[in-house]
Structure formats: C-alpha cells, structure tokens
Design a protein around this nucleic acid. Structure first.
Lengths: 140, 140
DNA sequence: CAAATGTACACTAAAATGGTGAACATAGTG
DNA sequence: CACTATGTTCACCATTTTAGTGTACATTTG
C-alpha cells in the first residue's frame, strides 16, 4: 500500500493543478481545504519543490504553485520519489536494479518474469496518469 | 518492494513444488540448499502450513511438503498473506476495502481509477502465477 | 528411552513511517 | 526601517514494521 506521504502528495498536486495559472496558494489554505496535516504537508511540498515540480513565494501573498504544465507531471515520478522503486522486486527495477541472490540465470526465472510484467504495466499506467488527466472531470 | 519474508516464501514454495510427490523435505535442507535463513524460514513455513498449503511431519525423516497440487497454489494468495492487500490504495482493495477520506464521490476520482486498473492487472498476473507455472522450464 | 525433528511464544535491534518543535530567512507593507 | 506573514531548515520523537533470534517444548521414529 502507498504511504500517507504519497497519498498527501497526490492530493496536494491535483489541487495545485486545478489552481494552475492562478498564482500562489498558501500552505495553510491548501492544508485546510484538502484536510491535510499542515506541518507534514510542508515537508512534502518542499520535496516537490526540490524536484522542480512546485515553486514557492515567501512573505505576504506567498505560497506554493505548480511550476510545470499539468500535462508534464505524472504519477510515476511522484510514486518513485515518495515510495521508492515502482518494481516489487529489485531484479526487475529500472532505476534501482540489483541482481537476485537466488537466481543463477535471471532470464530463466519465472518469478522474475511475472514481476517484470507487473512492473511494466504499473509503470505504464502511472506514467500516463498526468495531473492533467487526473483533474479531468468525467462526462455525465 | 516485497519484503524478504514474501521473497523467501516464494523461493521455498517453488522448491517444494519441484519436490512435489517426493515426500517431506527437512527445513535444514531446504534452508541450506536455497540459502534461506533457517530460523526465519521456520516461521514462514509454519504460516504456510496454517494456510493449508504445506503439511509437515515430526520426528526422524520428518519435514515439510506441499499439500496441494502445484497448479492450485498461486502468488496472489502468497502475496496477500505476507504483504497484505494487493491494492496500492485501500479504496481499490477487494479484501481490505476502506472508503477514501478525501473523496466525495469515489466513482468520479481519477486517482482511484488509475490505481484500480493497476490493482486489477496486478491481481490477474499474480493469480495466473501458479507454482506449476513458476517451475516450468523455459524452452530452449 | 534417545535423538531428530517440527512448534510455540516471547523477545530484540534496526529501519521506516508519520509526524512535531523551535528557530530562522525572506519578501512585502506601513 | 520595523513589522508581520509567509516559507525553510534541521533536529527530534513515538509508533509500527521488518527481519530476525532465544529458549523451551512436543512428537515421532529407531
């Protein structure tokens, strides 16, 4: 299961994506309106800023805002940052590959094959889930 | 990422599936030949016994053996037991569903939609991964 | 009975999770 | 310039999870 941190990040980002183009939003307002713990949220927003996804302004009328266009931020990047590898086994991870201590030949391992397929499908779904897609309202 | 416990369980089970029909195998032999920490493995095998997947015999020439046919044990069951829910969000879990504290209407939530698709694909792959499939040797 | 096995239950060290506290830096306003 | 509202930094903390280990016990076979 995803950590609270990742879930909070997704909620905060989709909100900031809806506000895209409207200037900065206060942490306090974001926390209150989305029901996120403010102090914890501060850490998360700071991480997102360091990733180059959010920008911030200090002082009066300061706050956070989405730097990139919502179509240029996807969940794969967010999940990687806050959860670590998308893969369930390091032997099928793209960014954090480590060879398996059990396998003599990974190409013949059927366990690996299953988890490789799962990783690839999961990654594809997460990568296609841009903030733009996430804030689209379903047709009635 | 999957825990060591889950990985060890998968390794032990595929080995016992290969030995299916050959009687009991010593924990010590299983641990040594598959390079698993024996004491930790004992806990895992006990869990698998309680799940009705393994049987055991005490005393001399005792040990563990697969109770069910290898085609009747799949990774979905194993992952659920040792990792908890297959879903990444409780709002898309089948066995551990919990409503989302953020959503007003889950049917309209696009985040949920993404993770529901991921859950369903993952579950399908894990369910089709029976021990019988896992021990098949690839054709040359 | 003795030895070889699995069983039970408690315990522990280290890491991850989900935060909080206190002081500081910066930008805008009067 | 001083004040105040904001974000920033860094350290700290309690709880839970992970990955085991310790010790004693129960059962079967020879």
């Amino acid at each position: 299961m995803l950590s609270q941190k990742t879930r909070y990040a997704m909620v905060a980002l989709t909100r900031l994506a809806r506000e895209y183009g409207n200037g900065a939003m206060l942490i306090s307002e974001l926390a209150k309106s989305e029901r996120l713990p403010q102090r914890f949220l501060e850490n998360i927003l700071l991480d997102l800023k360091k990733m180059g996804i959010l920008g911030s302004k200090l002082g009066k009328s300061g706050g956070y805002f989405l730097l990139r266009h919502p179509k240029d931020v996807n969940l794969a990047e967010i999940v990687r940052q806050f959860e670590g590898p998308i893969a369930l086994l390091s032997c099928v991870s793209e960014k954090a590959y480590q060879s398996c201590e059990f396998c003599k030949d990974e190409t013949l391992c059927n366990i690996r094959k299953v988890f490789k397929e799962i990783r690839d499908l999961t990654f594809e779904k997460l990568e296609n889930a841009t903030l733009e897609e996430l804030i689209k309202t379903s047709p009635l």
